[in-house]
């Protein structure tokens, strides 16, 4: 598995297809986050923006390899493991990106509530931000896994489905990502920092299920 992950990571980094989502994320943060704004609010924004980026990274990883090269790897390691390596690589890339953004935002923001009255400790805010980021990265990967190859193969269906699902899982009540993000946003009003592991746990379960479905179907559907 280590060899597969290393191969997929090299493919992702060298292909430079990671550039558009990363640049878009940077622009999104540049527009929405400014230094001196309340920290929890900005962290909520940072986490929510990562969800579609994580889904996009999954799309890059599962469609980036030319089919013939993929066939060689699948023959060596089996369809499920080859697909899992691509999904995990994308998830890992999203987590790294989200962590970097969260740390940066935590440092540059004002450590206070929206009305500047109550202080918000940087360490606890950063921890809450990381948990929300993790939940969004996991849920975004789950969305990407279920809306791309092998489930949806034509880009005409996969891309709109992916964008719609990413939007819904960011805003729909009941989604772990929405819970994590709204926890940060309301915390920025009230001064109560949400460090609950529940949204992350739910996102882990959803991502595991989505990855399992995608890996099991790889090799069964047409190439």
């Amino acid at each position: 598995m280590t060899a597969l992950l290393r191969y997929q990571t090299a493919l992702l980094l060298r292909s430079q297809r990671w550039l558009p989502p990363v640049i878009l994320y940077a622009v999104f943060l540049g527009v929405g986050v400014q230094s001196g704004q309340p920290v929890l609010d900005s962290l909520g924004y940072t986490a929510a923006g990562l969800l579609p980026v994580a889904a996009w990274l999954v799309r890059i990883c599962v469609t980036g390899e030319p089919p013939a090269a993929r066939a060689c790897v699948v023959a060596a390691r089996g369809p499920a493991r080859a697909h899992l390596a691509a999904l995990l690589t994308a998830l890992f890339a999203a987590v790294v990106l989200g962590t970097a953004a969260t740390l940066l935002v935590t440092v540059i923001s004002q450590h206070a509530t929206n009305d500047h009255r109550l202080p918000v400790p940087a360490l606890r805010a950063g921890a809450a931000g990381l948990l929300a980021t993790l939940a969004c990265a996991l849920l975004g990967s789950a969305v990407g896994a279920l809306t791309n190859r092998p489930l949806l193969r034509s880009p005409g269906r996969a891309v709109p489905a992916m964008l719609l699902a990413a939007l819904l899982s960011t805003v729909a009540a009941g989604s772990p990502a929405q819970a994590a993000v709204s926890g940060l946003v309301t915390g920025s009003e009230s001064g109560r920092i949400p460090v609950s592991p529940l949204p992350v746990a739910a996102a882990v379960l959803l991502a595991t299920a989505a990855f399992a479905v995608a890996c099991a179907l790889n090799g069964r559907r047409s190439p």
Binding site: A10, R14, E65, P67, A68, A69, A75, A76
Partner: peptide
């Protein structure tokens, strides 16, 4: 068994 496969047409569109 441990398997290896050679496709008919191999892409050169790999960044290696």
């Amino acid at each position: 068994p441990r398997t290896a496969y050679v496709p008919e047409r191999f892409p050169s569109a790999l960044p290696f």
